[in-house]
Structures are given as structure tokens and as C-alpha cells.
Design a protein around this nucleic acid. Structure first.
Lengths: 212, 212
DNA sequence: TTCAAAACATACCGAGCGGTCTTTTTAGGG
DNA sequence: CCCTAAAAAGACCGCTCGGTATGTTTTGAA
């Protein structure tokens, strides 16, 4: 199952990287195994020694991403900041990671593509929606939200905006400008969402890079 | 080229409908021609009499959608309403059409999938972004926007939100709740975007169904 | 140094795809 | 009614895909 020699681990990671790059570019179906093999400089025999199938390879990439988000959320929870700052900081962190790490990006795309194909299982987005909703409810209890704001609706809208921004950014710049695009969304959305002084406080985060 | 008998037109439209349903569900690559043929009750020979290729079929569906949006925009321009109401009304109209018409939905998906695969050509979304930006600039000149709002940034954020909402809605309910989801976005976004009394005025549109 | 297992290489396979070819049926003007 | 072209049918082809089977090289511990 897992490699027992040093060499094997290198080739395994070469496969993962090459596959992530291809999946991120064109998606699962449009990425033939031959392209992944050529890019990684690995032959078919070597590949099927490390992975049982192309599907298994995709699942491994999805897994990396599935493991990343809970850890990231826990880390932000442990900081003990106010809910609104936690929300914005967590999102900004996730977006920043996505813009840099191809494997994460590919994992998210693969997971999303499965959902879009099979309407029933919308695990990933619903999970993010839940995280945002919980934080927004907490923010409401802490008096950080403007009166009349529905936390669940806000969570849904934010999830939509983040998804759309990611796709557009992915198509135009391989997610290089995803963080900037999301900051734009926050600047646009926060005045209607957060009460003072939290709104100005959070917006100021984007001017001080060291906070993130 | 174009059919000369009544029967031919019927089968042609049967093909278009069936193809749209398949493309909308799973996308171009994942929709084999055999599935389209089976769904439409048309054989391969009949199909290739009407369309030169599977790509040509997809292009025809994309074309329907390409022709629809400019007409819709012109219709709203001719109403001579204020920019902000035009913006919201136009979007709500487009979203409502998408939620009901499979062919339009498939066309949008096909066009978007091409863009996402080939980063260079992002014609469709950039066009929408332009339309929204122009209307928002006009709204700014008319004093409908809150001070400090950047129209271009707002247009980008709104485009992202609309795209994300469409995808999520498409995956969970075949776009049946797309209009409701977008109204949610507007309720969430408008307070930070529009000055009074325009904000309340526009929001009231969603309570009176007959306006749309 | 040896040797078994781990790691890699390559030829090959069946399935499903989009597309073509030939043939048959149908429609509608003379 | 008939005859020609439009329209539809279905067998067929080449290709690429993911996956397998079998053979070869490399590794590290005894």
C-alpha cells in the first residue's frame, strides 16, 4: 500500500503533483492518464503500482483537501478572536492557500465536479456553508452584525460569491488573483453585514498584511 | 442545411431538447451522443443529417443563449427605468429564464465550460460584468449608490455571486431555486450598495411579484 | 554477494466514443 | 399515382481511453 523505499515516495509525489496540475487545468474527465504520466515522467506500470486506478488517484487528491480544512478551522478557533474576525481570517487563509497550492486547488475542483454531476451529495459546499453560518450566528449574538441580517442567508450568499470568484479567478489567472478578488468581495459586502466598529476594524485587516 | 420538411423540424428540436437536458445535467464531455439519441428517440443517421458533429450541436445550443441576452438587455433598456432598478430587474429576469428553460441553461453551461477549460476566452462572464459595471456607473452618477462604492468591483463581486449561486442551485435543484437564491443575494448585498430611498424601493420589488 | 521483494517498464486488451458509409423509407410537387 | 430528393436507419470504422498481464530492473537486508 504505502511505499517502502525512498525512490517510491518521490515518484508517488511526482504523480500527485502532475495529476493535480492536470486536474486543476481541465478537470477529471478531460485529463487523460497519458497526460499525467507524460508530465510526471512516470510510466503506466509505475503508476498502477502506486494507485489502484485513476479514480483512486483523484480520491487521494480530494483527501488532502478534506484533511486541510478542518485543521485550518481548528487553528482559527483556537485563536479565540471574535467571530467576525475569525470568519474573515479563516476565509482569507483558505483562499490564500488555494491560490498557491495546486494540489489543494485540484482537490477542491474534483470534489466540486463530483457534486455538480451528482446533485445529491453536496458535502463540501454545505460544510463550508455550515461553518460560515455558525460563525455568523455567533457574530450576531456578539452584536457584530447589523440589525436585520439573516445569518443563514448571508452564509449562502457568501458561499456563492466565494465559489464564483474561485472559478472566474481559476479560469483567468490560475487562482493567482483569488485572494484579491475575495478581498474585493469583502469590501463590497461587509458594510451591509457588519455593525460598527467591527466593519471598519475588519476592513483594516486587508491593509495590514502581517495580520493574516 | 435548414430543414425543408415539417417532420425534420420536429426531430431537430427533439434533438436540441434532449441534448440540452443531458448537457445541463453532466456537461459536454460526460454526455455521450448515445444518451442524447436514446433520450430523443432519434437514430445516429437522423442526427448527422441535422448536425455536422456533436460540437456543432453544442454550438447551436450556445447560440440560442448568445442571442437571448442582448435582446433581454435591450428590452430592459427600452423601459427607461432608473439604472439600479434596471440592473436588478434585468438580472432577476435572466435568472428566472434560466431556472425554467433547459436549453438556455445548457447553453450557459457549455459556454462557461469552454471558458474554464481555456482561460483566454472568457467572453460570456466578461460581457455580463461589463453590463453590470455600466449600469452601476450610471447608478452612481444618478446618486443611487452609497458613497465609496466602486462600481467595477461591485460588478465583479455580483458576477461571482451570480455564478456561484447558479452552480449550487443547479447541483441541488436543477436551478429551480435559483431565483430565490439570487433574491437572497440582493437582500444581503443591496444595503451596502444602494443609497436610500433606492435600496428600500428595489427590495420592495421582491415582495410584489407582478412588477417582474 | 545474494536474493526475494519492491519498483518500474511495456506490450496488449476490450469497451465506448465520435464519426462515416451505404441503404431504406418517407414526403410532396408534377 | 409516381418519382425524386429529403429524411432517417443501422452497420461499420478508427481511435483513445482506462486497465491488465507479464516481463525487467532496482533496492536493501541477510
Amino acid at each position: 500500500m504505502s511505499p517502502q523505499q525512498h525512490r517510491a515516495l518521490a515518484t508517488r509525489e511526482a504523480i500527485l503533483r502532475a495529476a493535480a496540475e492536470e486536474f486543476d487545468r481541465v478537470g477529471y474527465d478531460a485529463a487523460p492518464l497519458s497526460a499525467i504520466l507524460e508530465r510526471s515522467g512516470v510510466t503506466k506500470g509505475a503508476f498502477y503500482f502506486h494507485f489502484a486506478s485513476k479514480e483512486a488517484l483523484a480520491s487521494a487528491i480530494v483527501q488532502v483537501q478534506d484533511d486541510t480544512w478542518p485543521r485550518l478551522a481548528d487553528r482559527w478557533r483556537d485563536r479565540g478572536m471574535d467571530p467576525l474576525s475569525t470568519l474573515v481570517g479563516l476565509c482569507d487563509d483558505a483562499v490564500s492557500l488555494l491560490s498557491r497550492d495546486v494540489v489543494l486547488r485540484a482537490g477542491v475542483r474534483l470534489a466540486a465536479d463530483r457534486e455538480l454531476g451528482y446533485p445529491g451529495l453536496s458535502s463540501a459546499h454545505l460544510r463550508w456553508e455550515k461553518v460560515l453560518a455558525d460563525l455568523l450566528v455567533a457574530a450576531g449574538s456578539a452584536g457584530q452584525l447589523r440589525p436585520g441580517v439573516d445569518p443563514e442567508a448571508a452564509a449562502r450568499a457568501l458561499t456563492s460569491a466565494a465559489l464564483g470568484a474561485r472559478l472566474i479567478s481559476s479560469a483567468t489567472s490560475r487562482c493567482a488573483d483569488y485572494p484579491e478578488r475575495m478581498r474585493e468581495v469583502w469590501r463590497f459586502v461587509l458594510p451591509g453585514l457588519a455593525a460598527e466598529p467591527w466593519c471598519s476594524s475588519v476592513l483594516r485587516m486587508f491593509a495590514d498584511p502581517q495580520v493574516l
